[in-house]
């Protein structure tokens, strides 16, 4: 994984006649293997920054790079390829494909990557077991609880060992026990598999797991500090 560098990123949105600032000249560098939390009130720009880094949204100005790759200059196709091979997403709402089983949801990214059937099935079952969902592989999302669905989403995000996991309020719909389990899982993946995590959250319990905490407000970074 290469260092992620955001340089002077700006992003505005139009809401009726009003122009809202999403990101205001944001500068940030994230090294491989970091566990970063973006915190701040609603509308502070956390999700916008995650979306920009993940190539889901394009900044109005500024540069975003992952190693040699200029994310802000990529077209739709190459952006999709970058997400497919380098980034895992975990969203606030579990965002699973309802017509696929838990295992098929986890296999989906590997299928699109072109991995062989046996290999991806083995990997999917192993990762589901790792996130505590052994025996639930054949269930569809509607047959799983919120916590279980979020764990499937996490399993999907990490199964192909991406360089970077972007998680947007991953615990927002989970109870405290499930939240703690999820954060333990993230910590384990970060420490043992050196996956870089950038997590946008309001949740102070989540922030405690971060080794670096970036506070945002009105689209700007107002604090960037390492945590013990």
């Amino acid at each position: 994984m290469s260092t992620i560098i955001c340089h002077q990123i700006c992003k505005t949105f139009r809401q009726g006649d009003e122009i809202i600032t999403g990101l205001d000249h944001v500068d940030i560098t994230i090294e491989t293997g970091e566990f970063v939390c973006l915190s701040g009130p609603s509308g502070s720009g956390k999700t916008t920054l995650l979306n920009a880094i993940g190539g889901l949204d394009t900044p109005d100005s500024g540069e975003i790079s992952m190693g040699e790759l200029r994310i802000d200059q990529l077209q739709r196709g190459p952006l999709a390829d970058m997400r497919l091979h380098h980034i895992g997403f975990v969203f606030q709402a579990y965002n699973l494909i309802p017509v696929l089983s838990a295992q098929e949801n986890v296999e989906f990214v590997m299928q699109v990557q072109g991995m062989a059937t046996r290999e991806r099935a083995d990997k999917a079952r192993a990762i589901l077991a790792e996130v505590g969902l052994e025996g639930l592989e054949k269930r569809r999302p509607a047959q799983l609880s919120g916590g279980q669905q979020q764990r499937v989403a996490v399993a999907r995000a990490i199964v192909s060992q991406p360089d970077l996991v972007l998680a947007d309020e991953p615990t927002a719909n989970l109870d405290s026990v499930a939240s703690a389990q999820l954060m333990e899982l993230f910590t384990h993946l970060n420490q043992d598999h050196h996956v870089t995590f950038i997590i946008a959250t309001h949740d102070k319990r989540v922030m405690r797991y971060a080794r670096r905490l970036i506070r945002m407000q009105d689209g700007r970074i107002i604090a960037d500090e390492a945590q013990g």
Binding site: R76, G77, A80, R83, L84, F91, N95, P98, F108, V112
Partner: peptide, 13 residues
């Protein structure tokens, strides 16, 4: 929403 999701997961247009 699902189409957005599969886009986010890296499915080409």
């Amino acid at each position: 929403r699902e189409i957005g999701l599969i886009q986010a997961l890296g499915m080409r247009p």
